[in-house]
Structure formats: C-alpha cells, structure tokens
C-alpha cells in the first residue's frame, strides 16, 4: 500500500468514527507530553543542575575558579584511585567474565543452567550494591568465614593484604567489585559470544584450520571489538559505582564517595560546590568512555548480522 493510500484510509477511518469527529486534529503528539515532561524534570534538569553547579559560587555568581579543584592533590588522588580501581576490576572482570561466557557456550541457550546464570548475574551486576558488601564482610571481613578458616588452618590472623581491616580500603574493594563486574561481563558479552556462527568454525576447519588456529585467526578477531567494548562498559560501571563502596568505606577514597561527603559541607578543599565540580569531571570521563564504547559496538554490530 502506498503511504498516500494508507494516510487516506486512516483519515477515512477516523472520519467514520463514532466520536464527534469535528474536533479531531492530530493530537497524538500530546500523548508524548507526559513522558517528555517527566524526562526533562527528572533526568535532564538534575543532570544539568549537577554539572552546572560546579560553575557557580555559593552565592550564585558564575565562576570558573571551582575548576581549580582538579589541581587539588586530594581530588587528584581520588580520581587516580577511581581510575585504577576501575581499570583493574574492568580488566580482571572482562577476562574472567569472557572465560565464563566461553564455558557457557556448551550450555543450551534456553536451558535451566543458562537461566540460573543469567538471573544470578543480573542480581549481582545490577541490584546487589550494599548486599554484596555485606556478603564480602561475611567472607573476608575480620570475622569473615574465609578469614576465620584461614586463621584456624594456618595461624595467620589476617589474610595477606586482602582480608580483615584492609577490606575497608580502596584495594580491598577489588574482590567486592569483581563480584558485580564479572556478572556484568557475562551479561553483556554473552550475546557476542553466541553470535559466533557455527558455519565460520566449520568453514575454517574444512579449509585446514585446527581449533587453536580457528580461535586465534577467526573467533578472537571477531570478538575483539565486543570484548573491548564490554571492558569499557565495566570500567564505566566501576567508575560510577557508589553503593558498594559506601557500605564499606566511610570517608573519601574514590570520586563518588568524595562527591557524597562534599555535599554535607559547604566549602571543602577550598572550592564551592565541589560536588558539582566532581560531577562535571565524572561526566567528562563517562562521555569519553561512552563514545569509545559506541564506536566499538558499531564495529561489532557490523559483523554480527
């Protein structure tokens, strides 16, 4: 049907309607209003306020002086800690997560094992925050199950650098973060892994490739964009994560915690609205990450038709 015909028919149908049809110009766009208003008020406005507040003094005058906070050694240290925590957990999470995806290729996609893994990953990756922190306190906290067991077996009171009180430091966040990073990798990388077509493997084999050659020359290059894309996603996820760290660490340490603690005091580290300034910094980092992610995803999507 041509568009003209369709429009004509739609108009005909409308005119024939039982409604008093005089007053029925296209009001469909009004239906978009509630959602638009909601998104503007509760997403765009807060985001703009958060980032914008960094450019104002406490008295409401515009200033760029607050940006000097990025030169403050404490702020710099926060960003640095955030970066390396995110980087380490992104790399480890990506490698472990991809390995689990690889192992899951044997499971039936609609089987029970996959459903359990998917649901478990979803819980840990997206909704666990505080509860994951509790889980790790119960595991390698000073009275944790593993800490106690290790102490009983070896006589070592505190587990190397990880157990006991060091759980409450930035380095101690690594295993806890992996607890949601690995599942996030499983969730986001599995579709790419499943996108590997059997025909590629079989074609490679008939052409003389061994399994190792197939992985090195075919599967890995095909998966590479998705893998790095997901690793970036993991980095971004760790970088903006707040709940887990907040449940473990009381003060400072990483950027999201510093944002929260600077909310309660008017002037911190010599800058007004430090929270806004740090929020701006985070948004800049996220924009860069998401641009890179989008680029890699487009590349991966092109191959996975």
């Amino acid at each position: 049907m041509t568009l003209a015909a369709r429009t004509a028919r739609a108009r005909g149908a409308r005119d024939a309607g039982t409604e008093p049809s005089r007053r029925r110009p296209d009001l469909g766009w009004l239906g978009l209003a509630p959602f638009s208003v909601y998104v503007v008020l509760f997403l765009l406005l807060p985001a703009a306020l958060a980032v914008g507040s960094g450019f104002f003094t406490r008295d409401g005058a515009f200033t760029l002086a607050n940006l000097a906070a990025f030169g403050n050694p404490i702020v710099l240290k926060d960003f640095l800690d955030s970066f390396w925590l995110s980087a380490v957990t992104a790399v480890l999470g990506a490698v472990f997560g991809a390995t689990i995806c690889y192992a899951l290729l044997r499971a039936r996609p609609d089987g029970l094992l996959r459903s359990v893994v998917d649901a478990g990953s979803s819980v840990l990756a997206q909704f666990g925050g505080v509860m994951l922190a509790f889980a790790w306190i119960a595991t390698i906290g000073s009275q944790g199950l593993v800490t106690v067991l290790v102490a009983q077996l070896t006589g070592i009171e505190s587990l190397g650098g990880l157990g006991g009180p060091s759980l409450y430091t930035v380095a101690g966040l690594i295993p806890v973060y992996l607890y949601f990073q690995v599942p996030l990798m499983v969730l986001s990388f599995m579709p790419a892994m499943e996108g590997l077509r059997q025909a590629w493997a079989e074609a490679a084999a008939t052409l003389g490739a061994t399994r190792a050659t197939y992985w090195r020359r075919i599967a890995m290059p095909i998966l590479a964009p998705a893998f790095f894309g997901c690793a970036i996603l993991l980095f971004a996820n760790a970088f903006s994560s707040f709940a887990t760290a907040a449940a473990l660490i009381d003060q400072g340490g990483i950027v999201p915690l510093r944002i929260f603690s600077s909310l309660s005091s008017e002037t911190v580290l010599g800058a007004d609205n430090l929270a806004g300034v740090l929020a701006l910094g985070m948004v800049v980092v996220m924009v860069v990450l998401m641009a890179a992610y989008g680029l890699l995803q487009r590349r991966a999507a092109r191959w996975q038709r």
């Binding site: 008020l41 509760f42 997403l43 406005l45 807060p46 985001a47 703009a48 306020l49 958060a50 980032v51 507040s53 971004a236 970088f239 903006s240 707040f242 999201p256 944002i259 929260f260 909310l263 929270a275 806004g276 929020a279 985070m282 948004v283 996220m286 924009v287 998401m290």
Partner: peptide, 15 residues
Amino acid sequence: ITIPTVVIGVGFLPV
C-alpha cells in the same frame, strides 16, 4: 546508564 547515579543524585538535591 551513562550518567552516573551520583551525578544525577547531586542534581536531585535542588529538585
């Protein structure tokens, strides 16, 4: 997803 919740959180205070 791409805007950290802490950032939106800062903006929610005045709202």
